[in-house]
């Protein structure tokens, strides 16, 4: 009978499941790992399978992280973290399959681009990286009365922890919050302290409704600039849409009426 490990949808959750699945010696082909997204619907309930619910265990996750870094490479470790944060449904099992190869081949596993599994990892990693890169530019802060900078985002992948360090480095003297409204995650930075990632309860979420997003005069200046900088004779909305997909625009100052 097939064994299906159901784990939390997080880096540590997936790593824990990988540890348990691997050490069970049940045979790679008889095992499947599924990350359970919030709300907990299974991707596909299989009738004749054993379901094992995995409790995230940081010790075990750390062990997996350590052996990836030591036996494969730091690069591959970082790539797998990004895969774990992606919105690809079958990512947990893909990571497992990839690690079977990885522990066998070592650091050169990423070179095997013609291998289907490696190629998929490569593509998802690129996809997450692209969104991270997009978000670094497209995040917009609004200034609240007390000087706090706030930003609301709706990324496809769970990139908040990947983009926050960039803003911490860039705005060391600013107090700011970035809020992923779909995932109810917020990262908070207060000058000269390490930034933190918060999971917001339903109660806390309302805080973001109280913030204003049309307060300051710089928003108008920015909109003015945005409109004036375009060259009429070269207008090309298709190109604009390719470069800046519509899904980002609802969170961007210059596209607000």
């Amino acid at each position: 009978m097939k064994r299906i490990y159901i784990c939390e949808d997080s880096v540590d959750g997936i790593f824990t499941a990988i540890y348990l699945a691997w050490s069970s010696r049940y045979g790679h082909n008889n095992i499947k790992i599924e990350a359970k997204s919030k709300g907990g619907h299974y991707t596909n309930l299989e009738l004749f399978s054993d379901y094992i619910t995995v409790d995230t265990d940081y010790e075990l996750a750390l062990k997996v992280a350590k052996s990836i870094k030591e036996k494969i490479s730091l690069d591959v470790y970082e790539i797998l973290c990004r895969i774990a944060l992606s919105n690809y449904e079958a990512k947990a099992d893909l990571m497992y399959r990839f690690l079977i190869l990885g522990f066998h081949l070592g650091p050169k596993v990423m070179e095997c681009l013609s291998n289907e599994i490696v190629n998929q990892i490569f593509r998802i990693n690129k996809n997450v990286n692209n969104e991270v890169h997009h978000m670094l530019g497209f995040v917009r802060f609004s200034q609240q009365e007390n000087g706090l900078l706030t930003s609301v985002i709706h990324p496809k992948n769970n990139v908040i922890s990947l983009i926050t360090p960039h803003f911490v480095d860039r705005l060391p003297e600013e107090k700011f919050v970035i809020y992923d409204e779909n995932r109810h995650l917020a990262s908070l930075h207060i000058p000269s302290r390490p930034w933190v990632l918060l999971e917001l309860s339903d109660l806390d979420k309302d805080i973001f409704k109280q913030f204003t997003y049309d307060e300051d005069s710089y928003q108008d200046l920015w909109k003015t600039f945005f409109q004036r900088i375009s060259i009429k004779e070269r207008e090309n909305y298709k190109l604009q849409r390719n470069n800046l997909p519509l899904r980002f625009r609802k969170d961007m100052t210059e596209f607000q009426p």
């Binding site: 911490v168 945005f226 409109q227 900088i229 375009s230 207008e235 090309n236 390719n242 470069n243 800046l244």
Partner: peptide
């Protein structure tokens, strides 16, 4: 990278912050 005070850093690959109606990067 940032200096820990003041404001700002710079990335070699460049970051596009928006795209105007002519499709060019801002």
């Amino acid at each position: 990278s940032g200096k820990g005070d003041g404001m700002g850093n710079s990335l070699a690959c460049g970051i596009c912050h928006s795209f105007s109606a002519d499709g060019r990067c801002i």
